[in-house]
Amino acid sequence: MAASAVGDQLFTVVLSWVAVGLLGTAAGYLSALQAAATLATALLAGHWADRIEHRRLMVAADLVRAAALLGLVATWMARGDPTVASLIGCVLVLAAGQALFRPALQAILPALVADTALLPATNALLDTTERIARLLGPGLVGVASAVLPLVHFVTLDAATFVVSAAAVLAILRLRPAATAPVHRASMLTGVLHGFTAVRRHPLLGFMLGVTCVINGAWYAAFFLGLPLMIEQAGVTGPGGAGLAAYGLVISGYGSTNLLATLVVGSRGIARRPAWMIFGGNLFLGTGIVALGLSGLLLPAAWMLPCFIASAALGAIGGPMHDVTMATLRQTVLARADMAAAVRAFMVMNQVGTLVALLAAPVVFDATGVPQAVMLCGAAILCVSAAGFLRHGHAVD
């Protein structure tokens, strides 16, 4: 997972940069397509995916994504540049694979932990793989972009998916999988299953409704607004490249993301999960507002360090939200509902991303990029305030 997560970060940074170069502000539509593919897969494939043993599904998802990336590499090398069509095809496959892999991973986790009190630390341990990736992946782009062609960052990502699949296959050999149960529920029941399970819990139900705002604003700010601000202001990193500067900012995000994960994971199950969740949103929204202010008010020479500091501040909130939410789902929901519940949150995340990125090109052009980034942060701060007012008193 650590290898695959680093590869994902390499590809995410490169995809954002290449898409902005090819499409400008319309690059948001490519990310919107990715969100739509994840949304469709989470909604429609869950009924089928629950019939397959989770680890085997994870292996299949990894191998299919590796094949899609290698297809993009072949097209890129044959033509000298990636085509919009090849990027679209790759994004669709990667999104579908992620929508199958992540719920399967979350579903197997509670069965591996004998003591419920260890769930926060276990979630933090697995989250650490992604936090390390956010620290190392973009930093590798920043350092290696001067010597390694962009296309081979995609090659590296394909290789990491193969490594991930091999690891899960090795685990299957050590601990053979039980036969997966066959579910006879209708397609509609399968689609609604996760939503029904989550809405029974007040805090989880509230978060299911607002997670679209949080994820959409976060994605639009960091993966469209930030590269656009760097490109428009002419901010550069090592070797004089704008991509290197972008990689360093995302790496700064990853550094405090990792540290916060270690702290949150060591604290045990939160007595007031709402305080952790909405406190995390407060950090995230503040960091994004600071990111936009830096792009709006500062001279280009000061932007890079302030971008890094703002991203690092916002990143503190990620583990506070993510680890607490994962633990809450695992402790209040039935195990049979776990994969469906994770898919329900994925659906709402991707709805938010889809709406935000479809609107982003128009909003960014109308208001200016830094101002639009500040609006993204303000939206998250509003969610945090509403959450504190509605659920801050609860003890779960």
Rank of each mutant, 00 (worst) to 15 (best):
T160S: 12
A35G: 03
L354H: 01
F307G: 00
P103A: 07
R131L: 06
P238L: 09
L44Q: 04
V264F: 04
P120H: 04
G89C: 08
T196H: 03
G28W: 14
Q106D: 15
T286I: 11
Q232W: 11
A107V: 07
V263F: 05
A167E: 09
A356L: 13
V363H: 09
C382P: 06
A260P: 04
G317A: 06
F283E: 06
V369T: 14
G234L: 08
A85G: 11
A221N: 02
R173S: 06
L105I: 06
L148T: 07
P110C: 12
R55Q: 11
F278Y: 10
L22I: 13
G216Q: 07
I88R: 02
L188I: 15
V351L: 09
L296W: 12
A334N: 12
V264H: 00
L226D: 05
L174G: 14
P370R: 04
A158Q: 02
F223Q: 01
A241I: 02
V91K: 00
A220V: 14
M187E: 13
G285W: 00
W76I: 12
I88G: 03
A185V: 06
A301N: 08
V213S: 07
F278G: 05
A35D: 04
R173K: 08
A78M: 07
V355S: 10
L72R: 00
A165F: 15
T353V: 14
L22Q: 11
V18A: 03
A356W: 14
I108V: 15
H391A: 06
A121I: 07
L109Q: 07
L291I: 15
V91M: 05
L169F: 14
A177H: 08
L33D: 09
